[in-house]
Design a binder for these strands. Structure first.
Lengths: 207, 207
DNA sequence: TGTACATCAGTGAACGCGCGTTCACTGATGTAC
DNA sequence: TGTACATCAGTGAACGCGCGTTCACTGATGTAC
């Protein structure tokens, strides 16, 4: 167990290296979000306490509080895309690549449930500005999924005749599985891998 | 458009009817949640402004702020169960009943996206106390789904051999579809009913 | 090699705000006699 | 029928808190000469 005391004093960055604080701020924000389970807990003061700086120092790197959460979300999308792409690189078989990719997607949600939630919680009123970020970044990972289904169909491993529709279906199912399992740990869930395999198989129409 | 001015003054309840304020408080909390899109916006003062009372009056009916949100969530579960049950009463055909029930579930999510989100957002740290409520109340609606699949299978309308697993699969897919469509309106969604029909058909194994 | 100086990476105190919650209270409304 | 009184349904002022943000500042670090 690593305990970061709140009385920690950080050594000041050397000249020219001030930008490193930016990364520390984003990392701290992500940790606070993950620990508190709610984006409102990611306050400038909480971040400052965790990093070991004073709150106003943050303004050298971010315009306001919201910009920090946006950076956490952007980092989450980058990490998710990386995870999925490195997972599917593990096989040449199109059906297996679909399974690996979806498994990696779900694993990301398991490991960073609050960041994952924040990534897709740019709902209506609150952060309409962030929706385009999510759409653009998520579109990349989503495109990989659709291409995977198309490829599997072309090579006779899937009976899909509408890869886009099947891709959306698979994605919403994965999303629902990830968020519900995180939020309702008390429910009598079937085995994670059985459920995942079931969804992927039926929705990407593997055979 | 109905505009409820914040300078509205409420007529005081007559003696013995004080409990009516309780319902007004829960209704106002639900409206604020739905309008603001985030549970932190449901403050005692915002509720008081909307109802036309002073903030301390709320303490006659609720122990604290959290209890109000809990009441909204409980009301949401009751309404969801009612909606699903009244929808499936519209047909005797087991496959059609599944479609109708899932359609009603999704419609509830469409019409009350923030309440729906709050119902299932009793994540880890924040409101562990609320998880049992969700599990118990949701279990009722979920049981209806599993029974529906079992019934359809018994009458030859579904090829399901594991109604529980298929029920979970259907549920997580509906949940994912509901929350993602609400949160990412900018995405190029397929037609709502096509996607819904697709998910229900494949996951409950209709034939 | 020494020194004045610009710049960088932050700090500390303070502001105004809305919040949950408490406290003592008020005034209308029913009820007992 | 009248009246004293208990009760009910709230109110108004105040508290302490943590927050985002601003402002003028400080002191170490590198650079020009």
């Amino acid at each position: 167990v690593t305990i970061v005391s709140s009385t920690d004093t950080r050594v000041r960055n050397r000249r020219g290296e001030g930008a490193r604080l930016r990364d520390d701020i984003v990392a701290a924000a992500g940790e606070i979000l993950e620990a508190a389970g709610n984006p409102e807990a990611v306050t400038l003061r909480a971040i400052a306490r965790r990093v070991g700086i004073s709150a106003p120092s943050i303004y050298g790197h971010f315009a306001d509080r919201e910009a920090i959460v946006d950076a956490v979300v952007a980092g989450g999308f980058a990490a998710l895309t990386r995870a999925v792409e490195s997972a599917i690189a593990g096989s040449d078989d199109p059906a297996e690549r679909l399974r690996l990719g979806c498994g990696a997607y779900l694993r990301f949600g398991d490991e960073h449930p609050q960041v994952y939630q924040a990534m897709f919680a740019c709902n209506g009123t609150i952060a309409t500005d962030r929706a385009p970020i999510a759409v653009a970044a998520g579109a990349e990972a989503f495109g990989v999924l659709v291409e995977g289904i198309r490829d599997a169909a072309a090579r006779g491993r899937s009976t899909s005749t509408d890869p886009y529709l099947d891709g959306v279906a698979t994605w919403v199912a994965l999303h629902g599985m990830s968020t519900l399992m995180a939020n309702l740990p008390g429910f009598a869930w079937p085995d994670r891998d059985v459920l995942l395999g079931h969804l992927v198989e039926r929705l990407t129409r593997l055979r």
